[in-house]
């Protein structure tokens, strides 16, 4: 019996904007088990990001229950939420969010700085290891502006890995990248998933969702469909099938 990593029950989120109330989530229930690679899909404005922010303990739901790795998240204080993010969660953003003029290595070390249990030497070792895992060991001392978009996203993924999180949350992580690079990132996620990482991946692109193991489709703040991906694509293979770059010459 696999462990349940994320369990939400009847989650609601309303945004109050003066006269108008936006119902971003209208009662969502979802369960994600360890080792799953879930794509949250839906049109723009359907509530995907709102959902992910709540799952990431960055935002609080208006009502509903949320258990992360068997911890009841509602009722935790701000500091406890920060601690939870530091120890149990990894984030990957659409726009990478790396610190400018800070080396790849230092960017990756960042989450561990907020964990006083980890000493400087250990911190560096873990960070180097994470960079190796995303294939950037040779770019450790590069600054973000010396890296391509795909490489920056790899650094961000390495950063999300250093605290060995129970789940990685990614919001449109391939949104700023071209097809080939997107597939490369997906290949990396698939590799991580095959090693047992649980991943929740927000996207509105169906071809990207094909790389995951389960698709959850949102519409107007509801989950309208959950389906296991039967004909799952292998990103490595897809890259090999892409037309070679020199064909455009």
């Amino acid at each position: 019996m696999t462990k349940t990593i994320i369990e939400v029950k009847n989650l609601r989120k309303d945004f109050f904007m003066g006269e108008v109330t936006v119902h971003a989530l209208r009662g969502v229930s979802l369960e994600i088990k360890a080792g799953e690679f879930v794509a949250i899909m839906g049109t723009s404005g359907s509530g995907k990001s709102t959902m992910l922010n709540i799952l990431g303990c960055l935002d609080k739901p208006t009502s509903g229950e949320y258990y992360l790795d068997e911890v009841a998240v509602s009722g935790l204080t701000k500091n406890e939420l920060a601690m939870l993010r530091n120890r149990k969660l990894g984030f990957v953003f659409q726009s990478y969010n790396l610190l400018a003029r800070t080396s790849a290595l230092e960017n990756v070390e960042l989450p561990l700085l907020y964990n006083s249990k980890i000493k400087a030497k250990e911190r560096k070792e873990i960070a180097i290891h994470a960079l190796e895992a995303v294939g950037l060991a040779d770019r450790m001392h590069h600054m973000p502006n010396q890296l391509s978009g795909g490489q920056q996203q790899r650094v961000a993924i390495a950063r999300s890995l250093v605290n060995d999180p129970v789940v990685i949350l990614a919001d449109e992580a391939t949104g700023n990248l071209d097809t080939r690079t997107s597939y490369e990132i997906m290949a990396l996620f698939q590799e991580l998933n095959s090693k047992g990482k649980t991943i929740v991946f927000v996207t509105h692109e169906p071809d990207i969702a094909k790389f995951t193991s389960k698709n959850v489709i949102f519409k107007d703040g509801h989950i309208i469909k959950q389906l296991d991906v039967v004909d799952r694509n292998d990103a490595r293979q897809m890259i090999a099938e892409l037309p070679a770059v020199n064909e455009y010459d």
Binding site: L58, K78, N79, A82, R85, F91, Y114
Partner: peptide, 16 residues
């Protein structure tokens, strides 16, 4: 501001 947001998302507390 974005740096602050990032730091918070990876576990930085208000105090930090």
């Amino acid at each position: 501001t974005r740096e602050i947001g990032l730091r918070m998302s990876i576990g930085g507390r208000g105090k930090d």
